[in-house]
């Protein structure tokens, strides 16, 4: 029964890990009694109390930095940065500290922590509360990047993230919070670096992540009505990147369309496209294509935002043109 929302899955995913491991603690703004501004930590404070769910000031550097210090000394902190845009105010910790400490100490210390954040557009919050910034993190070696698209994957990837001994950026998507799915059984885990082939197909491979998954799934439906068989792949994690599943799919379909929410300039699809161009070139019957956000700040008004982001319609049109050319 599809009765678990993505939003509830975040809190449940964290709670499952807190029940099994007392070293898991949460910190962030309004995450305690308030349950989080997106209600993604609802119930944690009630179940685990103030000793394990800590409200912080508006101090993103202190939040991520303190999580690091705790992670390096025996805890498994889960830090919330309310909107992913706010990662910019603690970017030193995301870019210079978390991913580098293990390396530059010659492996003397590990940083087992998770930074969770509400990512992406679609809710009309304007240019400073709507960005899809997974590509920011994707420029930095040393960060695991997870971005689930379903409630079950939220729980499964959260389990992997919290149990990981590496720093994990966990992007939750704002437009997916209300979506529903199956409640996975206790102990459900989704390993990092395993893309999900959501739909099998022969004519073209559609690759998506988080926000773009409902788009590519609906596009595949509409393409089927036109007699085009699309294979749909949900990457689930950007690092590790499951390039072999994508390359294996392209070897059969000979075409690939990558649909991203982040801007075309510097978007993660550029790296994936370069891998396919390099290692899958002789399998291709069409140029590698990407659909991503236009290279403008995300506007406030819905009708303007629609102009900037990829859609089901542009995905269907682009894919059909690739197959029929």
């Amino acid at each position: 029964m599809a009765d678990l929302t993505y939003r509830e899955a975040v809190a449940e995913g964290i709670a499952r890990e807190m029940r099994r491991d007392p070293s898991v603690v949460c910190l962030g703004e309004d995450i305690g009694a308030a349950g989080g501004v997106f209600k993604t930590t609802q119930g944690l404070f009630e179940e685990f109390g103030p000793a394990r769910v800590w409200d912080t000031p508006i101090s993103e550097q202190a939040i991520v930095g303190a999580a690091m210090g705790a992670a390096m000394t025996g805890m498994r902190p889960v830090a919330e940065i309310m909107f992913s845009d706010f990662l910019a105010v603690c970017w030193d910790f995301i870019a210079n500290e978390m991913p580098k400490v293990r390396y530059m100490t010659g492996g003397q210390v590990t940083v087992p922590m998770v930074v969770r954040t509400a990512n992406g557009g679609g809710l009309g919050f304007g240019a400073q509360h709507s960005q899809a910034v997974e590509n920011w993190a994707f420029t930095i070696p040393g960060l695991v990047i997870a971005a689930p698209s379903t409630p079950a994957d939220v729980i499964g990837l959260m389990a992997s993230a919290i149990r990981s001994d590496d720093p994990v950026m966990f992007f939750e998507h704002k437009t997916l919070f209300a979506s529903k799915g199956e409640r996975p059984p206790e102990g459900h885990m989704v390993p990092f670096g395993q893309a999900n082939v959501v739909r099998a197909g022969d004519d073209i491979t559609l690759v998506g992540l988080a926000w773009s998954m409902p788009i590519v799934i609906e596009a595949a439906e509409q393409l089927a009505a036109q007699g085009i068989s699309a294979e749909v792949i949900d990457l689930r994690t950007l690092v590790p990147l499951d390039a072999s599943t994508v390359l294996g799919s392209v070897a059969r379909t000979s075409r690939i369309l990558i649909v991203e929410e982040n801007p075309l300039q510097g978007g993660w699809g550029g790296t994936l496209a370069s891998i396919v161009a390099d290692e899958g070139f002789y399998d291709l019957d069409a140029p590698v294509k990407r659909l991503a956000a236009a290279n403008v700040p995300l506007p406030f008004a819905t009708h303007l935002e629609d102009q900037v982001l990829p859609s089901v319609a542009t995905t269907v049109t682009t894919a059909a043109a690739m197959v029929n050319s």
Partner: peptide
Amino acid sequence: MGSYAIVGSHMPMAVGSAWS
């Protein structure tokens, strides 16, 4: 626990080890 070359960055970390 290390020497940090971005000025001030280790101070929240010290808060974190104290919290731990």
